[in-house]
């Protein structure tokens, strides 16, 4: 390659991509969590000295780049549920799709629409065990619910109801955390029963769930 061409490419390089400015920045990292990288932090040797186990610690901060999905997560910060809609076939989604899923729509880019803060339970479960970061919040009622005219169901927690009182098809409202507690993540909101909804009478299944859930409340109290 001629030297003049290389020089020209170097000169123009900054124009090939535009870097956005990130003025609004927030960190929610708990105190004491440090990015230590990778470190061997201990070992154990069996009494017969035949077997060794080693302890490795790893802590790393990731950047999740939301790209075209960003309006959904920015919407959460603003207390809105943003959905998308296909300009050709009219299908609506939350969780959103930035391109239509119909093979007939040729991955057309979808439009953003603000969704109503109402939903319906599609299916549900009551969790008595979970991942490490969720243990202290047990028992958790997880519902898959359809928000507005979405063609898909979204998973989130249902609050404000006894675990045994959740029902298929029950009407819900979307409730956001106070603005200063929102992080632009899915847990910025949860579901609650729609105003005026009342649980149905006790049934054998409800009694069974109650029997299964009661020890979970006790177990959570023992967690440090």
């Amino acid at each position: 390659m001629a030297e003049s061409v290389v020089m020209e490419q170097k000169r123009r390089k900054t124009k090939y991509a535009v870097e956005p400015n990130f003025t609004e920045k927030k960190q929610f990292r708990p105190a004491g969590v440090q990015e230590t990288g990778l470190a061997f932090v201990g070992y154990e040797v069996s009494d017969d000295r035949q077997t060794m186990n080693q302890f490795l610690h790893y802590d790393q901060l990731y950047t999740i780049r939301h790209g075209k999905n960003s309006p959904f997560f920015i919407g959460l910060l603003e207390g809105k549920i943003m959905g998308t809609r296909c300009p050709r076939c009219g299908t609506t989604w939350v969780p959103i799709r930035t391109h239509c899923w119909s093979l007939d729509c040729d991955l057309v880019e979808t439009d953003w629409v603000e969704m109503p803060l109402t939903a319906t339970v599609h299916t549900w479960t009551v969790a008595g065990w979970s991942g490490r970061s969720s243990l202290k919040r047990l028992p958790i009622i997880l519902v898959y619910a359809v928000i507005g005219d979405s063609s898909v169901a979204i998973a989130n927690e249902l609050h404000g109801v006894k675990p045994w009182d959740v029902e298929f098809g029950m009407p819900l409202k979307v409730v956001f955390k106070p603005k200063d507690q929102r992080q632009g993540v899915i847990t910025d909101f949860h579901f609650e029963p729609a105003d005026g909804w009342r649980p149905g009478p006790m049934t054998a299944e409800k009694l069974r769930i109650k029997e299964l859930v009661e020890p979970v409340y006790e177990w959570v109290k023992t967690l440090k």
């Binding site: 999740i64 939301h66 999905n69 997560f73 969780p95 299916t123 549900w124 479960t125 969790a127 065990w129 979970s130 991942g131 490490r132 970061s133 969720s134 243990l135 919040r137 047990l138 958790i140 997880l142 519902v143 898959y144 979204i154 998973a155 989130n156 927690e157 993540v185 899915i186 847990t187």
Partner: peptide, 29 residues
């Protein structure tokens, strides 16, 4: 519990991992 969460990293972490989600919960629903 950390192992369950590692496995659940194969769910969509932006939408499901944080909402108490581990695979037994999705399967239960």
């Amino acid at each position: 519990s950390q192992g369950s969460e590692f496995i659940a990293l194969a769910s969509d972490i932006r939408y499901e991992l944080l909402v108490g989600g581990i695979y037994p919960i999705y399967y239960a629903a």
